[in-house]
Nucleic acid binder design. Structure first.
Length: 767
DNA sequence: GAGCACTGC
């Protein structure tokens, strides 16, 4: 871990100084250190700077004072770019202005049209619409509503609808000209989600075909000119934010170990700075839990010369009940008149945009985050710890100024900030597997992907890969046109492989079961039931003994058990027992997919009972989510008259059919066990290892896998045993030996093809 | 035998 962090930090030019020396002068052993001298180090820096230019802000009027100007510009233009920092009130105000400005009746006066305001996140769509409904004094779901997956809170009377960007994209699939809308507002456009980027290109075309439609693009400052350029020089309006000034500090030298530096900075702030809570940005769960422990320990070591602290971790996979802790107040002084307490939140990027914590005065920004990257050559998405962008750093520092003037400590040099950080985070569309996106584009009628007007065009190789995958799946024909199958597949909110598996499952007489497997996978379930999972607590580095494996916490243990287990003195044995029991109960030796199916069946057989879940180490919340997904998938299946059916459970084919149906979707994600004892992915010939979380009791010759995870090694996770014969039966077009790299798997396949040929001849002769 | 940033449909 330590060495890895060093490697990451070296992305900023690290001074070649032994880490020991740094640790000695600035290290964690702060006891007895002169507090004031350490704080002066940053207070006295000549290069500390105020980031927000307050004078410039005064030049711009607040959003509610610019209404008339806004209405004029909107009336005169089809597209308008509106720039506003967090706290400008644009998300609630602008849609209400629009409502006043435009005639929402169709020209023939026969029906009303709506104003759509998109948000990247469900919670935002919901909470903002509620607030606006309240401001307008209407009932939510009536004139003002929202629409998110699983929940449509709108009616025939709705004129202003908040919805997620993904939802609007789905709507476009059935209503290509978005004819029910008069104005579309794309909010938080600077976040550049996949859906927002597709909507950009799509809306640009729709605007040409619908002169009556208007588009408002709302974004934070930094990329406004780019949006303006993209939308043919649309006028740009600015509204100021209402953030307090935040003072930015940089380190004089690059930090060798950002985790250590972050902890040191927390302790220094706590010793020397006035009251106010601290927010620390780190990259992932493990790092965060580690930091929390170390901070608690460090502060504890200092005794009662400093105030008490409440250290709170925050990341998305934390149960909601635990996430709530970030809103609890800082602890009171230990004794009356003693030093005040402080809340310290250690968080992933989730606190950068999705979650807002009031009362934060100090932000510590080490300059890194985990980012998704896609390698089209091996078709793998992975997470990489990378330096953040300037925009992201700006966003992070802004978190310090929500309630009062704040300070942000950047654990990198000002030179690094200026020279090394790229201005913007790469948009998601440049970092993702686009198979699903291409399928949606095709369904939207975009035939020429190469000339589609992407704001940032993806790499041609990524598009080629996506087209290739869709062609192998039968969603596109050889000319790249959407097939009937592809059309059905595009309706499922799933990856193309999974949609394919589902659509063909009726033919394998197991659609009921495949629905459950798909729902479980889609709800993010990958059960880790092996005892080794739990045992990791023992094998963890010194100081981590009391830590329970996160898999146990999140995947098989319910929320209420989480707090319980955190308090246990030696939870490892308990957790191991729990996992062993769970595995004994639900594990299926043929694979993890089937184990997921077992868990789902058991859950249903026990009437979705919460206490049953608790007793059986099942995460009730996750199962409920899976059930929700399943219902949605069933509705889509019925819409296309896809039969819901099962093989007799007592039949030998029950599991065989399920495995075959899975293969029909996942034939491109197969690995073969070589004589060396290693697995090689088929065709790509990547060496991979079965993730130790798997439930198999043997190493099958062929496996399908759901995920390819690049971490310390190349792992395939959620794997199921399949048979070589099925490959040549179910996906001969992919297992076409003419077009196959030389390898052991090829020789085995050759044999299988010969055998198949022989069998065919024999049966012919018998006739 | 290991370790999943964050969304969304």
């Amino acid at each position: 871990m330590g060495t890895e962090r060093k490697r990451k930090v070296s992305l900023f030019d690290v001074v070649d100084e032994p880490s020991a020396k740094i640790a000695k002068s600035n290290g964690l052993g702060l006891t007895g250190m002169n507090a004031n001298s350490s704080i002066n180090k940053w207070n006295g820096r000549p290069y500390s700077q105020r980031y927000y230019d307050i004078l410039e802000k005064r030049k711009t009027l607040p959003v509610w004072q610019q209404k008339e100007e806004f209405l004029q510009v909107l009336r005169a233009n089809q597209t308008l770019v509106l720039v506003g920092e967090t706290g400008s009130g644009k998300t609630t105000q602008i849609p209400q202005f629009v409502l006043d400005a435009v005639d929402i009746e169709t020209p023939d006066k026969r029906r009303k049209m709506m104003i759509a305001c998109t948000q990247p996140r469900r919670v935002a769509a919901m909470s903002v619409s509620r607030r606006v409904a309240e401001e307008m004094d209407v009932t939510i779901g009536e004139e003002v509503g929202y629409s998110i997956r699983f929940e449509d809170c709108s009616s025939a009377r709705t004129v202003l609808k908040y919805l997620t960007d993904g939802m609007l994209l789905r709507e476009a699939m059935t209503d290509p000209l978005l004819e029910r809308y008069k104005v579309i507002i794309l909010d938080e456009a600077h976040e550049r989600t996949l859906a927002t980027d597709v909507l950009f290109g799509l809306l640009k075309e729709v605007l040409r075909n619908r002169p009556d439609l208007k588009l408002v693009v709302m974004s934070a400052t930094l990329e406004a000119e780019k949006f303006q350029g993209y939308f043919n020089g649309a006028p740009l309006m600015k509204v100021p934010g209402r953030l307090h000034p935040v003072e930015i500090f940089y380190t004089q030298e690059p930090e060798r170990d950002y985790l250590e530096a972050a902890i040191r900075t927390v302790v220094q702030i706590h010793m020397c700075e006035p009251p106010g809570d601290i927010l620390v940005f780190l990259t992932g769960e493990e790092e965060i839990e580690d930091a929390c422990r170390k901070i608690t320990k460090e502060v504890g070591n200092m005794g009662d010369q400093v105030g008490p602290v409440k250290v709170v971790p925050l990341y998305s996979t934390l149960p909601p009940a635990m996430q709530q802790k970030i809103f609890e107040p800082a602890p009171p002084p230990v004794k009356e008149g003693g030093p005040p307490g402080r809340k310290i939140v250690v968080s992933t990027n989730i606190a950068e945009t999705s979650l807002t914590i009031d009362g934060i005065v100090y932000v510590i920004d080490p300059g890194f985050s985990k980012q998704k990257v896609y390698n089209p050559r091996v078709r793998v998405e992975s997470l990489l710890v990378s330096p953040i962008s300037k925009a992201s750093a700006h966003q992070r520092s802004g978190r310090a100024g929500r309630t009062q003037p704040g300070k942000c400590f950047r654990l990198y040099t000002e030179k690094s900030f200026n020279n090394d950080l790229q201005p913007q985070t790469y948009p998601e569309i440049l970092r993702s597997n686009l198979a699903n996106t291409v399928l949606i584009l095709k369904k939207l009628g975009i035939d020429d992907l190469v000339h589609f007007d992407f704001m940032d065009p993806p790499a041609p190789e990524t598009l080629m890969r996506a087209l290739e995958v869709l062609n192998y799946l039968g969603a596109l024909d050889d000319e790249g046109n959407l097939t009937k199958l592809g059309e059905i597949m595009s309706e499922f909110p799933l990856d193309p492989q999974m949609s394919k598996m589902l659509v063909v499952s009726s033919e394998f007489n197991c659609s009921n079961e495949i629905l459950s497997v798909a729902a479980m996978l889609s709800a993010g379930m990958c059960l880790r039931l092996s005892s080794a999972t739990v045992l990791s607590g023992f094998h963890a580095p010194v100081g981590m003994h009391h830590r329970i494996s996160k898999q146990v916490l999140m995947q098989i243990v319910s929320v209420s058990q989480y707090s319980l287990m955190k308090q246990m003195v030696s939870p490892c044995l308990e957790a191991q027992k729990a996992a062993d029991e769970a595995k004994a109960r639900f594990g299926h030796i043929d694979g993890d997919h089937l184990t997921l199916l077992n868990v789902y069946h058991a859950y249903k057989q026990n009437n979705e009972d919460q206490s049953w879940c608790y007793e059986n180490f099942i995460n009730h919340r996750a199962l409920k989510a899976a059930d929700n997904v399943r219902q949605q998938l069933v509705r889509i299946m019925s819409r296309f008259n896809l039969k819901l059916c099962s093989t007799d459970f007592n039949s030998r084919d029950y599991y065989v059919n399920i495995r075959k149906a899975m293969l029909a979707g996942y034939f491109m994600q197969v690995a073969h066990l070589e004589r060396t004892g290693h697995y090689l992915t088929v065709k790509d010939n990547q060496v991979v290892h079965l993730h130790p979380s798997n439930c198999l009791d043997h190493k099958p010759e062929w496996v399908i896998y759901n995920e390819y995870v690049l971490t310390s090694r190349n792992f395939i996770r959620t794997v199921t045993d399949i048979r070589g014969e099925w490959l040549v039966d179910i996906a001969p077009h992919y297992y076409d030996l003419e077009n196959f790299p030389q390898c052991e798997a090829k020789r085995v396949l050759e044999k299988l093809y010969r055998k198949k040929e022989k069998d065919r001849e024999e049966s012919r002769n018998r006739r």
